[in-house]
Nucleic acid binder design. Structure first.
Lengths: 200, 200, 200, 200
DNA sequence: GATGAATGAGCTTTCATTCAT
DNA sequence: AATGAATGAAAGCTCATTCAT
């Protein structure tokens, strides 16, 4: 049953994602993951050839997931550029609240333990889907004359760094208010940072 | 010799900082650190009670270092708020270029492997020195009427997230231009995001 | 179909023989053998009860094969004893060149990993067919007065050890000349060693 | 204490040699070796970087040992070539009887599991000491006009194959007489095979 | 303070074999 | 006969830490 093997892989990915984001990559063991799935450690290797390969497939999974979310925003023609920023911030925080393990993994495992990914995911190959959608958002904004035509990565750094920073602070229980309550001010901050002053 | 024991601790901290930031915390071993210092693995434990304790002292060391740098900016009364932002960005990038292991460790080990610090550095205790200086900068700006009186952590998230994001992208060799060349646009972005529109 | 089950067993034996001789018994896995036959690992156990049982059947297969070859020599009444030696050497080297996996397995797996065969093939039970034919050759030679009537196993050791040694050296690419070019000198050496000096 | 570390390595080599030759390379585990030495498995790796590295050092140890034995024969000017053959056969069988693990390892592990040695001991590098002494014996014999000037490896194959074959048969308890009782006939066989007929 | 051999717990991974389908 | 997911035992190896010297 091709179907069930693929879906079990996804089950493993979800379980591992949860454990890795909670306890870290190196401190989570394959037996732990297997146990959480009520299967044997040996069987794990029928699905993934190594712990690193699993890590790779997890980040691809996350990238796809985030890309899909942003794509729906990109494909909403009725939204203004600022509204799109608000939506992206919103969706990001929503994920941070409802599925925090996704962003946790992204920020804490993928971005921070590059030795794991050095060979498998050179540059941004494994998160291409996600980066592409943000690129589309940015290009659209520039096209429409709403955003300054600055280097994409500078804008990308602002976006991801800012949001990542907030989510991180929230995860650390450092923020005095609930994360959502910052949505508006952050949207404003980002919009001010990126907007084109020349616009009519 | 109290003196020399303390200075050897610092030597170990510097060596470990370099190795940890390059190869990761879990993938760097105590024997490796000891070897890089031409001393025995056993002797390491005369200076630090455990690998985790070493990690704690490293982040405290970094926090002190960063705090000192920002303090000189805070204590420059002739600088405008925007110029201070520019200086902070500048100093941050300078460190990123000249001593990248500092920020690498901060971003990739400290922020990302909280399981290491969970018990030793609850919340921000171990980086208090650094956070305090940023707080002072921000409060001064608000006091002078230059910055909006928003929640400090929102501003902190913008600052650290944005800069961290850029440094990260730079470290990944993703940025098309040298890091310094973004200083001005980033200063501008941050200033726009934080500034008080009511100002005369 | 009795027929096809038996012939599939032989297919497995041939495939396993090739893989074992190339990669070693312990470093070749059942899944590898199965894959090389485009069948499932589980199905293997419908043909052989264990990896060890397979090893046993392989050596019996080889023994039969070698016995058949030597039998044709033994049954050539027109050949002199020295010519028979030449023929045996020739056939041995021919097998070494054309089907090296046979002798490789014999020398490197069967003779060398006795822990595999200890229980299944006590003494020479599993290679009886082959030993018997060599015995016949030797007895004939003694009968005809061509060979000294020494202990059979001493002669057997000379034969198999010498030829095995040469094949081994050839396999190691240590021999400066092609294997065949040693046939004559080896025949001479063996004949001198075994011949009866009293003969007319 | 440099001294004691080196001598412990030799202890490990001897213990492992015994276990490997008795139970095979793949079926003997590092924990077993460690246990036989009353030490922890982990500590093993303070002496040898891997199981393969241990295998390499064992064969070098054996090669040295055999070389030393043959060297004393080579350096006995009063012995005739035939007597030297007899001595080599004798010493070989003596080792086979008193320290059978040496030749067992040589024949059954080193010669038969080349995948273990492929990278570490290309060609005959790891047994050079031993091969060199046999070369010297052979060259001396040719020099003196006692042996035919045939290719060294052909003679080497005869020697090692024949003796190896006999030792093997003896190890299998196949020989009807004690190994030593074959010394004379084997010496005769080898001498006849190698001798120069032209000699006065 | 310094050394480094020793420990022991634990990790990733492998693989012969079984078994439900 | 055939599949291949699943098991479970075990292997090689690593490494933080200890401790006798």
């Amino acid at each position: 049953m091709r179907r069930s093997k693929e879906s079990k892989k996804i089950d493993i990915i979800k379980t591992a994602l949860r454990l890795f984001s909670k306890r870290g990559f190196y401190t989570t063991t394959i037996p732990e993951i297997a146990k959480a799935m009520s299967m044997s450690a040996g069987n794990f290797y029928n699905y993934f050839s190594s712990k690193e390969k699993l890590a790779e497939e997890i980040i691809r999974y996350i990238s796809e997931y985030l890309a899909t979310k942003i794509r729906t925003i990109n494909e909403s023609p009725h939204l203004s550029t600022k509204e799109k920023i608000r939506e992206i911030v919103h969706i990001y925080f929503q994920i941070a609240i409802e599925e925090p393990e996704m962003l946790d993994f992204f920020l804490r495992i993928y971005l921070s333990n590059r030795e794991i990914y050095k060979e498998r995911c050179q540059g941004i190959t494994c998160i291409m889907a996600f980066v592409t959608e943000l690129m589309i958002f940015f290009d659209d904004g520039v096209q429409k004359g709403d955003l300054r035509n600055q280097n994409f990565f500078s804008a990308f750094g602002l976006f991801m760094g800012y949001l990542g920073g907030m989510v991180f602070l929230n995860g650390e229980a450092i923020l005095p208010e609930p994360l959502e309550s910052y949505e508006e001010s952050i949207t404003e901050n980002i919009y001010r940072a990126l907007k084109n002053d020349d616009q009519a």
